[in-house]
Amino acid sequence: MTAAAASLWDMTTTIVTTDRLTKRYGDHVAVDDVSLTVRPGEVYGFLGPNGAGKTTTLRMLLGLIRPSGGTATVLGHPPGAPAAVAEVGALIEGPGFYPYLSGRDNLRVMARYRRLGDETVDTALTRVDLHDRGDDAFSTYSLGMKQRLGVACALLGDPELLILDEPTNGLDPAGMADMRALIVALAGQGQSVMLSSHMLSEVEEICDRVGVISGGRLIAESTVSDIRGASTLYVRAEPADVALAVAMQVGGDDAARVLDDNGVRIELDAGSAPQVVRALVQAGADVYEVRTSERSLEEVFFEITAESIAGTTQGVSR
């Protein structure tokens, strides 16, 4: 494929595609038939608990490890092809730098590998707010500073795609907020970002689409709002059994669920609230609270991972 054709290919289809990507270590399947897509200009969140296979998948996309099965395409090239890697900036499982060199010299080394000038180094250091500490040895950096240097390294040369493995790892709350703002800004410039995280709120906040991985399997891939589902009604009324009966009567038998605090969640939109309240009052219940509620990604995540573990991976939105 020529460069022009590859570029056209990228623009019209996807930045990253995997097809049944698999990695086995002996009997252990670390990544199992993962098929995902990252589209141009989006922030793609790769979400899963520790050990779910996020980092292993990202390593395969970057050519650091060889897949045991399946295929992947990154920017129109096979993973690890120099032409693909040159257009990808990546931070995988913690920053790896020369401890005796300063942060700036570490980036100068990497810039030389990329055949870029030294001025890109200053730009990258400034973007992660490390400019003032750039001349200190890497070994003296705090965990958060090391992480930021890793992200700065990924930014060298403004690559088309950023692959960031847990980029907010080790950062304090302010640092996390800065990092998220930076990622959103990068996406705003047209760079595509694929980031992994075990922090649901983080992914929820900045990602356009998410892939949820658990036990090596991609169990859902969609937009955050699709995965979360439509908004629901939350009702707290006494007696609780009457409230549940009314909820089931109004919303249908499968649409109501009792939560831990004796509240009831009903799969109905906000427009149904008056009807529900009226029915509750007519049934003699005391209504304490009625509000619309959106499921957090966290709830969704635990629901679908529980389904996955139970072997019922079907029926999850794809």
């Binding site: 050519g63 650091l64 990497m110 590998y113 060298l156």
Partner: peptide, 9 residues
């Protein structure tokens, strides 16, 4: 790992 991610092959 870091140098392998810079693109020269």
């Amino acid at each position: 790992k870091t140098t392998a991610l810079q693109g020269p092959g």
